[in-house]
């Protein structure tokens, strides 16, 4: 009896490990398997078409159904990911994107400052997103303080604590 139970527990543990392994391999944390490459490279869209506030605001903004509906009112592909998108649109539900790049509330980061005034390309901080076929699940560079300060040092920008901290 006892050995049988241990055997069963062992199998269960192995099974859950295997599931964890497969999940870790995929690492997709986004609700829809969004494909940047198909939009940017194959359909000539600009970053600012979707991340519309990157030049005007602190937040670049992540687009949602009201932005996708322009082209995805009806299916344009036969992909599973698009049908997930269409069900969000039909139910008028907000897509719960998980924001991957985050700085804590005590630090001030502004896209306008860097993209518009600093004339920095998105790729410097986010990598060649336009070629990503998988949705973004981990940052290209962790937005930590040393990273901010190294570039500021190089470009002769203020590194006074109160330039960023609040």
């Amino acid at each position: 009896m006892k050995t049988k139970r241990i055997f069963l527990i062992g199998i269960l543990m192995l099974a859950s490990l295997a599931i964890a392994f497969v999940n870790a391999d995929k690492r997709n944390i986004q609700p829809i398997a969004y494909n940047h490459n198909k939009h940017v490279e194959e359909n000539d869209m600009e970053c600012l078409d979707c991340h519309v506030y990157a030049e005007e605001n602190a937040q670049a903004s992540i687009p949602n159904i009201e932005d996708c509906i322009v082209c995805h009112e009806e299916a344009v592909t036969e992909s599973e990911s698009e049908s997930t998108l269409l069900s969000y649109i039909q139910e008028n539900k907000v897509i719960p994107w998980r924001q991957v790049y985050v700085v804590p509330d005590y630090a001030y980061f502004s896209h306008r400052r860097h993209v518009k005034l600093g004339e920095l390309d998105c790729t410097i901080c986010h990598g060649d997103v336009g070629r990503f076929a998988e949705p973004i699940s981990e940052p290209f560079v962790e937005p930590v303080m040393d990273w901010c300060m190294d570039c500021h040092e190089e470009k002769n920008v203020s590194n006074d604590c109160y330039a960023c901290h609040r």
């Binding site: 804590p104 509330d105 001030y108 502004s110 400052r113 330039a163 609040r166």
Partner: peptide, 25 residues
């Protein structure tokens, strides 16, 4: 625009530093 301070830290008036950061920008 302003942080929420955790327990265990001292805080005080910052002359609304977040407003200066935005105004400079």
């Amino acid at each position: 625009d302003v942080s929420v301070r955790p327990d265990g830290v001292v805080e005080k008036c910052t002359f609304c530093i977040h407003r200066l950061q935005k105004a400079k920008e």
